[in-house]
Design a protein around this nucleic acid. Structure first.
Length: 801
RNA sequence: GCAGGUGUGGCGAAAUUGGCAGACGCACUAGACUUAGGAUCUAGCGGAGCAAUCCAUGGGGGUUCAAGUCCCUUCACCUGCACCA
């Protein structure tokens, strides 16, 4: 094995000293490659990071050689709970924890030879950065896009802490196992739901992978339907939302949300108040998790004393309270059609309610639902004048009628809610708002930004669920920015998603101290050309970031409504047991160990070669050794240099350039590597050794993936200027294919032989040659030829009887 | 339950997008070199068969001259979301 330690260090220093990868906001062909910046955890860089950073590094290095001005930046997303919890445990300021971890990550990334422009690096926790995150929040507020509202939070009574949904999974606190309670809390929200339609439409201006787009679409969850008014017997009304108005004649009851406003309004008329209140209380104790778990039975109570009138036929039907109806989706009330909705069906069975069938189909054991009847020409029944119409016709006609009568409206509903933006944590961007008894909520003056986190030593959460900042008087007490009287600061901080929603803009202009990024810089880079990250972030992070950008666009602060062009995602690197790497499973691979034992180039190459980039792949140390062996062979073939020039095999050279170029831009790193292995195998077969041009070509093509050793060999054999300063080789399309092709000959679809023909040979001559082939002619003997198919350059198939 | 994804040798995987299934690598076997080999090189390597040939891409069916690839159906696993009306 070669001395990779010395060689890799040498070239890393070279790139550093020469600022090889420093990029300016000027020149032709700007190209922005972005990888998700890491959360600098205490456990250091993961081999999964190495996979995606290497992949995009390879792309960046190739693009640079092809004359693009490549921005390939790196930073840190360092706010968040783990650093805070570690700080609590070890009694130090989280910023020190982060500083240490950032250093570790930085060093690790440097030893891997990534071509980041380190001069543009920052952490979301830098006051110079989060100043602008806070400034942007103020813009949200000023444009009425941020507001305070009461929401429920997961509360662990033992830890005295607000928990994220993830930390409250299964309804128990992840840290201590205590039953989680729901607690009401007034929090800052961003009006994200308002952007539902725009976020859907915006996808047309992107080149995201189809599955990424789908993830976004599902998350937004648009459904088109009808909102219909329902009168209550004896006065009053409410409305319901439905996507299946065609079943309106099948309504046998209504269900309303226990956590909605409607039941509050109805309360005075309710006869069984105690029962109803008890049920409301029960529901409020359940987290959304619990509600789902109790899915088995459909709980609920009859609301006595009020009845609803089915607007289409005037029938009186009961109203129930059921916790499967959510107070904050739709109108918080639903029409129940047990014959055609499984959920209603179960509810009706449980509570012994009528079932009225209105669409022809089998409802003996379960509901005949929309996925059963839509698009299948099913007909209505028991529906007065609509009986006999198809579902599709009825849907339109019933809607038209209800709309005409003024009791219904066509509406769209979205699952996506407003963004709960407050966190009761210390380690986040303080929300830059001040409350004054006289003036209410007002933003901190811009010249007073950033609102920095105080240097204290206690980060323990408070007893009442407030952020630890609430205990720090010198932080809380301040002057009202409007009237100057004593006032109090908001003590909630922002969620971790905040800083990562716009960091890619900052990379375009990272040192700007009078705006978050200049319009010129953003116009120059235009959009992120490639954004690579984990599949787990393609729904939420991407949606938050797009929302944030669309808002900035609408107030004229960024040049494009969508700032990310292509989003791709990579598969995970699994442990050798095919399981997700985790300390508890003991299957974690530390990239440092691999770099020490085999070198960064070997690790980089292996991670590119291990499998389809977009798919999960298990770690396999033997396979890595194979890559190490390949690099040894590259070094060794240098001894076979002859003094000829040009390419020994023109076709091989052109073919491989084309292949590598295609593969590196289509996430097919594994086949790029294998085509280079093939090239080396061919070189080995050359009888008179290889030329300098042959060797340099191999090294240049390999350089994006294994940059250190290729530079070293290029220098050692004096093959030309440093590869990082060189131009990517051009290929000649006409020379990527041999003149003589091997053509497969089939008889009745079965391979019977091959022939070598010139690629321009006319079809009839090809066919003639094919029939003469020894084995083929044997299979044709005594048979009648029915059909002859010649696909030039591909195959010949002769069909016989 | 819904959505998305995956399923090909002993293993990681390829397959120009409908055209010779298994490229490339690992592991394995045999041989060479060697004091030695966990180094290197050469050859072999889906299954059955001496062979011609036959069988084979989770299972079943279909379209086609031709299917891993398209259509229908079914099973298994993974990842999200989860009573969304």
């Amino acid at each position: 094995m070669y001395n990779f330690k010395e060689i890799e260090k040498k070239w890393q220093n070279y790139w550093d000293k020469n600022k090889t990868f420093k990029v300016k906001n000027e020149g032709k062909n700007p190209y922005y490659i972005l990888v998700e910046f890491p959360y600098p955890s205490g456990s250091g860089l993961h081999v999964g990071h190495v996979r995606s950073y290497t992949a995009q590094d390879a792309l960046a290095r190739m693009k640079r050689m092809q004359g693009f001005n490549v921005l390939y930046p790196m930073g840190y997303d360092a706010f968040g709970a783990p650093a805070e919890e570690y700080a609590i445990k070890t009694h130090q300021h989280p910023k020190n924890v982060v500083k240490k971890n950032v250093e570790v990550f930085g060093n690790q990334m440097r030893t891997l030879g990534f071509s980041f422009d380190w001069d543009r690096s920052f952490s979301t926790t830098d006051p110079e950065y989060y100043k602008w995150t806070q400034w942007q929040f103020i813009q949200f507020f000023k444009h009425d896009m941020a507001y305070k509202a009461v929401t429920k939070v997961n509360w662990c009574p033992k830890c005295k802490m607000v928990l994220s949904n993830e930390d409250a999974a299964g309804g128990v606190c992840e840290r201590c196992g205590t039953q989680v309670e729901q607690k009401e809390k007034s929090q800052w929200m961003l009006r994200m739901a308002k952007y539902s339609e725009d976020l859907l439409k915006g996808l047309d201006d992107t080149n995201f992978a189809e599955k990424v787009k789908l993830g976004q679409i599902n998350w937004i969850g648009k459904s088109s339907g009808v909102e219909m008014d329902v009168d209550i017997v004896g006065g009053g009304k409410f409305s319901i939302f439905t996507t299946c108005i065609e079943t309106v004649y099948g309504i046998t009851f209504f269900v309303i949300a226990p956590d909605g406003k409607l039941i509050e309004e109805l309360m005075p008329r309710v006869e069984n108040k105690e029962e109803v209140l008890e049920y409301i209380k029960e529901t409020s104790l359940k987290s959304s998790m619990d509600r789902t778990e109790l899915n088995k039975g459909k709980s609920g109570v009859l609301v006595k004393g009020v009845e609803a009138i089915n607007p289409i036929n005037g029938k009186h039907v009961p109203i129930y309270l059921g916790d499967f109806v959510l107070g904050d989706y739709g109108t918080g009330a639903v029409m129940a059609v047990p014959a055609h909705d499984q959920r209603d069906y179960e509810y009706a069975k449980e509570h012994n309610l009528d079932i009225v069938q209105v669409i022809e189909g089998d409802i003996s054991t379960k509901a005949f639902e929309k996925q059963d009847y839509l698009g299948k020409n099913c007909k209505l029944m028991n529906s007065e004048e609509f009986t006999g119409l198809t579902v599709e016709e009825a849907k339109e006609k019933i809607t038209d009628m209800l709309v005409q009568k003024g009791i219904a409206r066509r509406v769209n509903n979205y699952k996506m809610r407003d963004w709960v933006f407050g966190r009761q944590r210390f380690w986040g961007e303080p929300i830059p708002m001040i409350y004054c008894d006289d003036c209410g909520w007002n933003p901190v003056k811009e010249e007073d930004l950033p609102v920095t986190l105080p240097d204290v030593t206690e980060y323990e959460p408070t007893d009442n669920g407030e952020s630890p900042l609430a205990k720090i008087d010198e932080f809380v007490n301040c002057k009202c920015p409007v009237c100057g009287k004593d006032a109090k600061r908001e003590t909630d901080t922002m969620p971790q998603w905040a800083g990562s929603s716009w960091y890619f803009l900052r990379f375009m202009d990272p040192h700007n101290d009078h705006e978050f990024a200049s319009m010129d810089a953003m116009k120059y880079w235009n959009k992120v050309d490639w954004y690579n990250g984990g599949m787990e972030h393609t729904a939420r992070h991407l949606l938050y970031a797009r929302f944030w950008i669309q808002f900035l666009y609408n107030i004229g602060l960024v040049p494009n409504k969508e700032m990310i062009w292509t989003r791709v995602s990579h598969g995970m690197v699994l442990g050798s047991d095919n399981q997700k790497m985790s300390k508890s499973k003991g299957n974690v691979i530390n990239p440092d160990d691999i770099v020490n034992e085999y070198g960064a180039d070997t690790l980089r190459m292996y991670e590119m070669f291990m499998g389809d980039y977009q798919m999960d792949a298990p770690w396999n140390i033997d396979s890595l050794k194979g890559c190490s062996r390949f690099i040894d062979r590259i070094i060794k073939i240098g001894e076979k240099l002859n003094d000829k020039s040009g390419y020994t095999d023109e076709i091989l050279a052109n073919k491989t350039i084309a292949k590598v170029e295609y593969d590196l831009t289509h996430l097919k790193y594994n086949t790029a590597v294998s085509s280079l292995m093939i090239m080396l195998n061919e070189y080995d077969k050359f009888e008179n050794g290889i030329t300098k041009d042959d060797y340099r070509l191999l090294l240049i093509l390999l350089n994006p993936i294994i940059p250190h050793i290729t530079e070293e060999l290029n220098e050692q054999y004096n093959l030309g200027e440093a590869i990082c300063k060189s131009t990517w080789p051009q290929y000649d399309e006409s020379k990527t294919q041999d003149e003589l092709l091997t053509l497969a000959i089939q008889v009745n679809g079965k391979l019977r032989g091959t022939i070598k023909v010139n690629k321009d040979k006319p079809n009839d001559e090809v066919l003639k040659l094919a029939k003469e082939e020894e084995n083929v002619s044997k299979h044709l003997e005594g048979k009648e030829i029915i059909k002859e198919i010649v696909i030039p350059g591909k195959i010949v198939n002769i069909v016989v009887k």
